[in-house]
């Protein structure tokens, strides 16, 4: 338990720092790389939460595919690889109070609702088979809908990005 707790806090601090860099850095490519750190950290937290399959999917889909997309997007829009000065809005300070208010609201709600409740200690790792039984059983219809969404996204992306 202690080892897991230590792991959690190390990853959590890393994630928060990296997330702050994503939204503050002046370099688009750096932001993408910091985002990789956050996503990898999230994958680590999923493993701590006994969700192996989701963690692996996270690594494959997010870090593998989505990040490549982001880097391609950065390059195709010919953003400068170096630092840029006009990435932020003129009124970016408004974001700080909004974020803080949200944090306070959620923090209050969470403390009140879950207080010092603990996660079950002897959590069994959820196997891939259980997840697939869920997906192809009671949640088959959302799966179909999702397939259509992906199909539409593929076609849409091609149509949007085509040059003619």
């Amino acid at each position: 338990m202690i080892a897991q707790n230590i792991g959690f806090w190390i990853i959590a601090v890393l994630m928060i720092v990296a997330a702050l860099r994503v939204v503050t850095t002046n370099n688009v490519v750096h932001a993408a790389l910091w985002l990789v750190v956050v996503l990898a950290g999230a994958a680590g937290q999923y493993i701590l939460l006994a969700a192996e399959f989701v963690a692996i999917t996270q690594v494959l889909v997010y870090i593998g595919a989505v990040m490549v997309l982001f880097l391609f997007g950065t390059m195709l829009t010919r953003a400068r690889i170096g630092a840029e000065s006009d990435l932020n809005n003129s009124y970016k300070k408004l974001g700080i109070p909004v974020g803080l208010i949200m944090l306070v609201a959620m923090g209050l709600a969470l403390t009140r609702s879950f207080g010092a409740e603990k996660l079950p200690d002897s959590a069994k790792v959820v196997s891939t088979q259980e997840v697939s039984d869920q997906i192809f059983g009671p949640y088959l219809l959302p799966f179909w809908a999702l397939s259509f969404v992906l199909l539409a996204a593929v076609i849409g992306a091609i149509v949007l990005a085509r040059k003619d």
């Binding site: 338990m1 707790n5 928060i16 974001g95 974020g99 949200m102 879950f114 207080g115 010092a116």
Partner: peptide, 23 residues
């Protein structure tokens, strides 16, 4: 491990994301 430590991490990430969208 507390339930809240994960939920707090999630809310911090959420708020940072919101800040990013605005800023």
């Amino acid at each position: 491990m507390y339930v809240n430590q994960f939920l707090f991490l999630a809310s911090v990430l959420f708020c940072i994301g919101v800040y990013g969208v605005i800023a």
